[in-house]
């Protein structure tokens, strides 16, 4: 059954590391309409930062390429994010998702996927070598009741 989308945005940008802050900030602004707590917003920003950094470091290690983020608001206060690149892809997704696995530089810890998994409710990774990767994440924002 398809989940109804009530609002969405699409962001497209080049894989410059300077765009990491822009990406998480823009998604956080969009997610704010779900009235998240500061902690929920921090979790979303962290997950976006990890996914975008993976694309910058691993998908396009020796060139600049296109990254597209789609953020959708679904029924029941669910935020869905997909981060897509058209880079070199991941040969073994299961291995890449293991904690401390990294083929990045020394400024990477190999904890990106672990943090995305821990901070979001759901994470799926689809990748094809030479064609790119799509990371999709969902997080339900807890509805807050007004103080009486």
């Amino acid at each position: 059954m398809k989940t109804k989308c009530t609002n969405y945005i699409t962001l497209e940008f080049l894989s410059h590391s300077a765009n990491e802050g822009f990406a998480r900030g823009a998604v956080a602004c969009f997610a704010a309409q779900l009235d998240p707590t500061l902690e929920e917003l921090g979790d979303i920003k962290t997950a976006v930062s990890e996914a975008v950094t993976n694309a910058i470091v691993h998908a396009y290690p020796d060139r600049l390429g296109k990254i597209v983020i789609k953020a959708r608001i679904l029924e029941e206060n669910v935020l869905e994010l997909s981060v897509r690149d058209w880079g070199r892809g991941i040969a073994d997704v299961e291995k890449a998702r293991q904690p401390l696995f990294s083929t990045g530089g020394e400024e990477r810890s190999g904890m990106g996927f672990t943090i995305m998994e821990s901070f979001m409710d759901r994470l799926t990774v689809r990748s094809q070598e030479g064609k790119g990767t799509r990371v999709t994440m969902r997080r339900r924002i807890q509805p807050r009741r007004a103080v009486q």
Binding site: K45, T46, E50, E107, R108, S109, M111
Partner: peptide
């Protein structure tokens, strides 16, 4: 005001 897993690498280094 924000830190992602890059901070882990900084601390370990």
């Amino acid at each position: 005001t924000f830190m992602d897993s890059s901070g882990i690498a900084v601390v370990l280094r």
